[in-house]
Design a binder for these strands. Structure first.
Lengths: 222, 222
DNA sequence: ATAATTTTTTAGGTGAGGCTAAAATAATCT
DNA sequence: AGATTATTTTAGCCTCACCTAAAAAATTAT
């Protein structure tokens, strides 16, 4: 049997990995709220279970199997959050805590039943994807930069324009895939959009901004 | 924090106590599926927590506080069973196992929500009472012996007849409070009812059977 | 009443998953 | 480079809930 502790570590590693690639012992210790020494011990165990790869002093990476388990827990968590809110009328600030405990003990059947009851959702109300049973994760939603409201932040995922000249132009401004952006201002009608990249801000025509797809990070939405 | 193990012990002690008054170490070990030595250890702990009273070699009795905790767990369990069946369409053979795990992790709020969603029930579909939040337990249902169908078994709880002669007559047949009975046959219309007591069976007029109240044990119902 | 049997408790041990303090390694500053 | 600082690992302990084997107490049988 896989313990709840293991499930929690895998889930936490997955989330840290999403943000930062490789996961350090101290980051994991901080996120799990345990001492670093405890993490070292658990990471050894996870490695022996082939759920993570670990090179001492270099952090940890989920294996295929570890990722699958992490996604199962995350699927449980997000389905539960959704169910608690939709079916039981929980307010959104309370669902997380409850789901945190329930996620470890519900059966596949329970998962299946609430999944159906909710109409087989693939995304929770935060916009976060609900991993599928087979481990598939729907791509995060990509919005047109031109559709975002001021205050929205995210990461550029795609820049599509038929004109290579335009792409080069955007590139010199740091508007390339994986670059973080923030919308500062947005003129009404078809007016320009002001965006902030790593260092400076730029004013883009609405037509240009339309071809830049951004993955917004939910917690940064207006 | 009260561990799940403690909750499980209290629940089990409560149930055994219902049947047999005082609970022996070995009975508890058997019910919990652990070694007797483990029970001795846990019972010591429960006693130190003032959840049970324990006199070595004489078994264990729940304290007021212990009973309250036991009832909370049982309330969770029965509400969950009902909810799983009613709201999620679980079949009755699967609800127990799922409730067994969930009962330890749901919050008071979760309990409250499903209680309301179910219409504030006081009894589960087995007929078992659902303890109230304040620890009140509705009396077990007493059926007229004359209303039971063949196959039903239970324990006599009340024999009410104005005629002392009749009571004596029934007494000689073992039809007294706390005696187990089983309905063997039941004639149509107002015909007689054939019941089995400890050793022998008797045929009773419907009018007589009407005055005998039986507490049926759910698992023996038709 | 004594012996045999059963029940319960004690003694000592195990594995999980934590902890602290100290040692080892890596990274950073001057 | 060498020293300081930060991170990670090792070593050794703790608690919890279980275990087995042996001792003690209670019960039952002769």
């Amino acid at each position: 049997m896989i313990s709840e502790a293991v499930q929690d570590y895998l889930k936490t590693i997955y989330k840290l990995q999403e943000d930062t690639g490789v996961v350090s012992t101290s980051a994991l210790a901080e996120a799990m709220e345990v001492a670093a020494a405890s993490v070292t011990g658990m990471v050894k165990k996870l490695a022996s279970l082939k759920l993570v790869r670990h090179h001492p002093y270099q952090g940890v990476v989920l294996s295929k199997a570890g990722e699958k388990m992490a996604l199962e827990v995350i699927r449980h968590h997000r389905l539960l959050e959704l169910y608690l809110a939709e079916a039981l009328g929980y307010s959104w600030d309370k669902v997380h805590e409850e789901a945190e405990r329930l996620e470890h003990v519900i059966s596949e059947e329970f998962e299946e039943k609430i999944f159906e009851a909710l109409g087989r959702p693939t995304r929770d109300p935060h916009g976060d994807p609900i991993p599928a049973k087979d481990g598939t994760v729907v791509a995060a939603e990509h919005d047109r930069l031109s559709d975002l409201e001021p205050g929205a932040t995210g990461v550029i995922r795609q820049v599509s324009d038929s004109d290579a000249e335009v792409l080069r132009y955007l590139g010199t401004r740091g508007l390339v895939p994986n670059a973080p952006v923030e919308v500062l201002e947005k003129a009404p009608f078809n007016g320009p959009v002001t965006v902030k990249t790593r260092e400076t801000s730029h004013v883009l025509g609405r037509d240009l901004a339309q071809h830049i797809r951004v993955e917004t990070r939910p917690e940064d939405e207006t």
